[in-house]
Design a protein around this nucleic acid. Structure first.
Ligand code: MN
Ligand code: MN
Ligand code: ZN
Ligand code: ZN
Lengths: 132, 132
DNA sequence: TTTCTACTTTATAATGATTCTAAAAAGGTG
DNA sequence: CACCTTTTTAGAATCATTATAAAGTAGAAA
C-alpha cells in the first residue's frame, strides 16, 4: 500500500484506520475541502468500516501537523480542512457554506509591506466571501 | 447620548444595555479586536453593571448585522470581532492568539481574477499568520 | 514465535462557546 | 396610564471538539 511509507516517514504507524482514512483523503483525483463530519460520512460510505470519531479527529490533526492537510481560516461552526496543501486561497460562498479554490495565479502576488518585530510570516491566505 | 441616534437609525432601540455596550466598544480612541468573553470582562470592569452574556451575544450580533462590527475569519475556539469596520486585513500571531491590523496600504491592491458565475464578491480579506 | 512496551483506537464523558427558551422587564406610542 | 412590542435575563440545551482511560495493536527484541 502506497501510504505506508508516507505514514512511516512522518513517524505515524500505518494502522488499518489511518490507511483507510488516507484512501478516502488522498486517493481521489481532485483535492477537496471537508469538515470532520463530512469525512466521517464519506468513510462510512466509501469503506464499510466503523472508525470512531475520536480516531478521525486524532488522525486529521496528525495529518495537519505533518502537512498532509491544511486548515482553512474561516468562521464557521465547524473547522474546514483542505487536502490541497499547496499555497492557495479560497472563495467562500455564504449562501451554501461551500469553499472553492483560488489558485495563486488567480490572485497575483501579495506583498506584505508591514513587518512585525521578531516574528516571521508563516502563511498568507486570502478569503473572498461570495453572495448571490 | 451620542449613540442613541446611531441605534435608532438602525432600528435598534437604545436600551441601557446597548448604550453601555456602545460605550465600551466605540468610545475608545483606537479600534480593537475582541471575543465575546473579552467584551464581557471589559464591560464588568469599565462599567459597574451586569449585562447578561445572552444580551452581549445578541447585541454583538445585531451590531455585526448593522455593520458596526466585523467578524474576523480565523480558526479559533472563539469568534473574534473587530471594531474597525473599514476594509482591512490582519496578522494573526500564533504564539499568543493576538490579532494586529494590516491596513490596505500595507498589502497593496488585490486583484481577484477568477469569477464565479452568478456570485458577487462581498469581501476580500487577507490573514497573515505569524510565528516566532 | 513469544514477549514486552509504546502507540493507537475506542466508547464515553467532559468541556466550552454559542444558541435557545420562556418569563419578567423595559421601551415606545397614543 | 394602558397597551403592545421588543429586549433582557437566567438557565437549559446544543454541538463541535477534546479528554479519559481501558482494551487492542504494531513493532522490535529476545
Ligand atoms: Mn487542529
Ligand atoms: Mn454572528
Ligand atoms: Zn483549497
Ligand atoms: Zn482589525
Amino acid at each position: 500500500m502506497k501510504y505506508i511509507e508516507k505514514l512511516r516517514n512522518s513517524g505515524l504507524r500505518p494502522t488499518k484506520q489511518r490507511l483507510k482514512i488516507c484512501q478516502v483523503l488522498f486517493d481521489s483525483e481532485k483535492t477537496f475541502h471537508f469538515t470532520v463530519n463530512d469525512l466521517a460520512k464519506k468513510i462510512k460510505i466509501k469503506i464499510d468500516s466503523n472508525i470512531s470519531l475520536a480516531t478521525i479527529y486524532n488522525t486529521v490533526h496528525a495529518f495537519e501537523k505533518k502537512g498532509y492537510l491544511k486548515q482553512i481560516p474561516i468562521n464557521s461552526s465547524q473547522t474546514y480542512f483542505d487536502t490541497n496543501v499547496s499555497d492557495h486561497h479560497h472563495f467562500y460562498d455564504l449562501n451554501n457554506d461551500k469553499l472553492i479554490d483560488l489558485e495563486n495565479s488567480d490572485v497575483g502576488p501579495i506583498n506584505i509591506k508591514k513587518k512585525i518585530n521578531g516574528k516571521k510570516i508563516k502563511s498568507v491566505e486570502v478569503l473572498v466571501k461570495l453572495e448571490d
